[in-house]
Design a binder for these strands. Structure first.
Lengths: 150, 150
DNA sequence: GTGGATGCAAACTCTTTGCACCTTG
DNA sequence: CAAGGTGCAAAGAGTTTGCATCCAC
């Protein structure tokens, strides 16, 4: 179904290059280092395909454009070709640095928070976003809040 | 500075009418019940003014258009604007119902989560969003997903 | 009467889509 | 060669802004 175009490869390898959570324009920039003529439309189309394939996951933070990260597919390469519809656990939380604007994956979860909801409400999932300064920005002078690296 | 226009009044009373967290188009709909000729631009402009005045607060949830809620201003009118740092800011979390799409304010907070961040990161704030079914939608048969309350 | 507020339309950001052309298998 | 992907441009949602008009003060 999916053809192995240079563009598809470029989009996917953009994640390996950066190894972090990327916006569509950031993916475009990385992909253009490999295929300079690639367009933003193709990035979005390949991102959609990769999302459908479960290769990457969408990361939406409040007030931010969508980002994408490589999905953690525990044992997809182990010969288990039978892929059950939903990958059970894309349950991640994120840290948004107000210094450089980057988003980092957190490897911890505060656990279920069903008790925060009012009586009679049925909690199905939760999202946590942390804001602050990443290690680099703390080192670079702490109070540099707000200015974006460009 | 601010003139008491019918539109400003209509926008502000939209919140009293609904008493919940509203998107701009929802504010427009409520305001039009009072001032039918009001435009979406004016809603956005009045919302900006009300935000600047601290009358309302912006509520941004992942993957959702911005919403607005009346700000809790503890005792701003009493002349005592200085507080002990207890709840100077409106630190709220929200519940997003996947049934009716409404957003509800939560009155609890899981507390600081600085330990979720990697070493060297400086956590300044956190946001929590719960997803699930509100009491009405649970009562209405749970899987009523998608239909909006008019 | 004057200046801030309004309504309309255009602009802007982010994302999706229609269409003619090109590439992969 | 044909199915499918690509680039460009245009369309959409959500939000902001320029401008002539209007109305609260």
């Amino acid at each position: 179904m999916q053809r192995l175009t240079r563009q598809r490869n470029a989009v996917f390898s953009a994640f390996s290059d950066a190894g972090r959570v990327l916006t569509a324009p950031e993916i475009l920039a990385h992909a253009r280092e490999i295929v300079p003529e690639i367009s933003l439309s193709t990035v979005y189309r390949q991102v959609s395909a990769l999302l459908a394939d479960g290769e990457i996951a969408k990361v939406e933070l409040p007030g931010e454009p969508a980002r994408y990260e490589v999905a953690c597919k525990p044992d997809e390469a182990h010969g288990h070709s039978h892929h059950d519809g939903e990958e059970a656990d894309h349950h991640h939380h994120y840290f948004h640095c107000s210094g450089c604007g980057q988003v980092f994956l957190l490897h911890a979860c505060p656990g279920p928070m069903d008790d925060l909801a009012p009586q009679g409400f049925q909690v199905q999932s939760h999202e946590v976003t942390l804001h602050g300064l990443c290690a680099s920005c703390v080192g670079a002078g702490g109070k540099a809040g707000g200015h974006k690296a460009h």
